[in-house]
Nucleic acid binder design. Structure first.
Length: 280
DNA sequence: CGTACACCCTGGCCGC
DNA sequence: TGCGGCCAGGGTGTAC
């Protein structure tokens, strides 16, 4: 599930459990996720104190007290489960696909469960973080002020690829995935088929707040889910979304006065949902 | 440079 | 009840 808002929600849920805590045990239950885990993965993290949790695009970055950074990508099916007060409460048995387990010195257990194993983890020195091959070519963070119509327009200039594909490209803008691209284009009234280079001026002006709004709304929804989850414990970052177009093929457009039917098409091998009347 | 695909992996769902 | 095919929210690499 994880796109930027879900990863952000996971980071916010992890911070109170991990920040300032020491990792007492780190267990990799298999040697590889999508890629082999780095040599000495568990040993290199054991005994480290977590200084802070950050996010870049869809990557969780866990900064340790010795300058090591855990780069953590959830892939398609990655989930983070948190159990606190394990000295009082029974920890549930490990599940299939619980691949990596962190235990802190304050009796918290964090499990990374990833069925499809498209997720991965790597360790890098903080100095080399920006040069990491998976991080180096990522574009601007969409929620930063610097991401404006001018910046987006510049990156789309001359591109003939459909705007759907461009927004999915992490080098153009960071953190959007298949769902929020459809949602953003709907909110902006821009057809997913539109050639990227034509998204300039007015259209770019409209797309920026659409992207920011879609993402902040989803992060807000994730925040409420975190508050709900605090009582029950467990899975982080998964919450009920209200999508306007994603997964709504055949349903009427939700825009006032528009009764057109939401269409589903395939672009670069992935589903796109849009309103053919509202999006041009 | 762009597009189209294959690939990594597992599981749920649908139709037969 | 079983099985094959298709689908899934990510990202890389290849051929054309």
């Amino acid at each position: 599930m994880p796109e930027l808002p879900e990863v952000e929600t996971v980071c916010r849920g992890l911070a109170p459990v991990l920040k300032g805590q020491r990792l007492q045990r780190v267990i990799a239950r298999r040697p590889d996720l999508r890629f082999p885990l780095p040599d000495g993965f568990g040993q290199r993290l054991t005994g480290r104190r977590v200084e802070r949790i950050a996010r870049r695009a869809k990557y969780i970055l866990v900064h340790m007290d010795d300058g090591t950074v855990l780069i953590w990508h959830l892939g398609m099916s990655g989930r983070v489960l948190i159990y606190t007060d394990t000295h009082v409460r029974e920890t549930p048995p490990e599940q299939a696909h619980d691949h990596v387990i962190f235990e802190t010195d304050s009796d918290a257990v964090i499990r990374f469960n990833d069925t499809r194993r498209f997720g991965f983890m790597d360790l890098v020195d903080a100095d080399g973080l920006d040069d990491h091959p998976m991080i180096a070519r990522i574009g601007p963070e969409p929620l930063e002020d610097a991401f404006d119509a001018k910046a987006l327009g510049a990156r789309l200039k001359g591109k003939r690829t459909p705007i759907k594909a461009a927004l999915l490209d992490q080098g153009i803008v960071a953190g959007l995935g298949n769902i929020y691209v459809s949602e953003s284009l709907f909110r902006a009234g821009i057809s997913p088929r539109r050639s990227s280079h034509t998204v300039q001026g007015q259209r770019a002006q409209k797309l920026i707040p659409a992207i920011k709004g879609v993402l902040t709304d989803a992060i807000e929804a994730g925040g409420s889910s975190l508050r709900d989850h605090r009582q029950t414990n467990g899975e982080l970052g998964y919450f009920q979304h209200q999508f306007a177009v994603y997964g709504k093929a055949g349903e009427p457009c939700s825009n006032q006065g528009c009764n057109a039917t939401i269409q589903q098409i395939v672009q670069s091998g992935r589903s796109t949902f849009f309103c053919p009347r509202c999006q041009r």
